[in-house]
């Protein structure tokens, strides 16, 4: 996966987590995923379609999700509260929305869809068409994982198509 595609997600996650959780998150892991994805706990999936297509999953273990939801809503919640899942979905929406904003302003056109709760235990691993990148951020609430599966469909605006 190209660095120009990865960096906006790293920057967006860093900025959104820092502002929302009022902390300095640290990027703990950034690697290509060879194995199939396994869900950690409470996960939200966002689809993107356009010149780049794929899906991004933001995933946290149940304890981290609860700590984040309590902190962000300012209320005491329990792990089964819908607001815990809602919080993770909105966090995914904001991280991915900000990354997509940067990529669109760089000339990659694509559309982002509303986040949905992701309940499947497993996901696809890398193949010839789709690369899968995993990253994790350490925050005071716990670890936030992102699993990004993308493939390019068309050239970006302004890129010259050369004869082959």
């Amino acid at each position: 996966m190209k660095m120009e595609l990865i960096q906006p997600f790293v920057n967006a996650a860093d900025a959104v987590l820092a502002q929302m959780l009022e902390c300095t998150p640290t990027l703990d892991k950034l690697s290509m995923e060879e194995e199939a994805y396994r869900r950690k706990g409470v996960a939200a999936l966002v689809m993107v379609k356009g010149q780049i297509e794929g899906r991004i999953i933001l995933d946290v273990d149940p304890e981290t999700a609860l700590r984040m939801a309590c902190r962000l809503t300012g209320t005491e919640l329990n792990g089964t509260d819908d607001l815990v899942r809602e919080t993770v979905c909105e966090l995914a929406n904001q991280v991915i929305g900000n990354a997509v904003t940067t990529l669109n302003d760089q000339g990659c056109q694509f559309h982002v869809y509303p986040p949905q709760a992701h309940t499947e235990e497993h996901g696809a691993k890398s193949n010839e068409d789709t690369e899968v990148l995993v990253m994790s951020f350490e925050t005071p609430c716990g670890t936030v994982y992102m699993n990004i599966a993308m493939h390019y469909l068309r050239r970006r605006r302004g890129e010259v198509v050369t004869a082959s």
Binding site: G97, V100, N104
Partner: peptide
């Protein structure tokens, strides 16, 4: 009020009647 704040989106919103745009996370 949206996390998706790229230029074309903002222009489209303003052209279609919105008065302003605030990007999430909202300060």
């Amino acid at each position: 009020v949206s996390s998706v704040g790229y230029q074309e989106n903002i222009v489209a919103a303003l052209q279609r009647g919105a008065r302003h745009f605030v990007q999430k996370p909202v300060k």
